[in-house]
Amino acid sequence: MKLGFLVDLNLCMGCKGCEIACKVENEVPLSSWRLRVKYIDIGSFPNTSRSFTPLRCNHCENAPCERICPVSALHYLENGIVNIDSARCIGCAGCMMACPYGAIYMDPESNTADKCTYCAHRIESGMMPACVVACPVEANIFGDVEDEHSHISRYIMEHQGGVQVRKPEKHTNPKHYYVGGGTQTLDPLAHQRLEGYGLFNNVTHLEHNGDPHHGVLDRFLAPFVGHEKIDNKSFMDFSADQTTSKEGDH
């Protein structure tokens, strides 16, 4: 069994239902995302179009994050899912440097790496991932890519020639496919992040990696003196320092 994902971008309408479902199901903290939907505008007024691209972990068959993890916190499950054991993670961020898809984040609550697991806990109980259930147009197709009769396998066969993966040149052999995508939507270098053109401005780079209140000393003292409780307000300091963009004009 090799579980895979396929997103039909022709169907996706950018409602972000999958994004919210993922957040709720996995209790993903603010400032972190396991799944996000990116809006990209193409063309010039009045001939413009907007595309919506859901982005999550690609569960690569040859996963660079698994290879670089020094303690096997990132590991393969038998069904092909690249899972993560937060209790073992040392927080070196090597996986964040290795993942070509930017799909791994430092959880600000646990201060360990985390990412989409294809809702492995739901799969184990025979349920579909939360994002699949939430999608109103069934743009998210999930299943066993080794089973030729599965929905995802049939979908891939029906759309032969139009099925793409992100960054195939990396030889990671992703198990996450797209139908209806193009270079402009799947290649991050083929679109620009220009200040003033987004629905929200001054949103380019996170100023913190993991917990913003987890300094060097806190990392050592936390097991003994406890840790400052984190709630949503911890991430809502919109001071000038945190909103100023830095070299984010790509």
Partner: peptide
């Protein structure tokens, strides 16, 4: 200001900054 064929991100998350 933007070439007609150029794609522009109009909604996305804040990307991670410098990690190492």
């Amino acid at each position: 200001t933007i070439h007609a064929t150029q794609a522009v991100v109009t909604l996305d998350i804040a990307l991670p900054g410098i990690i190492w």
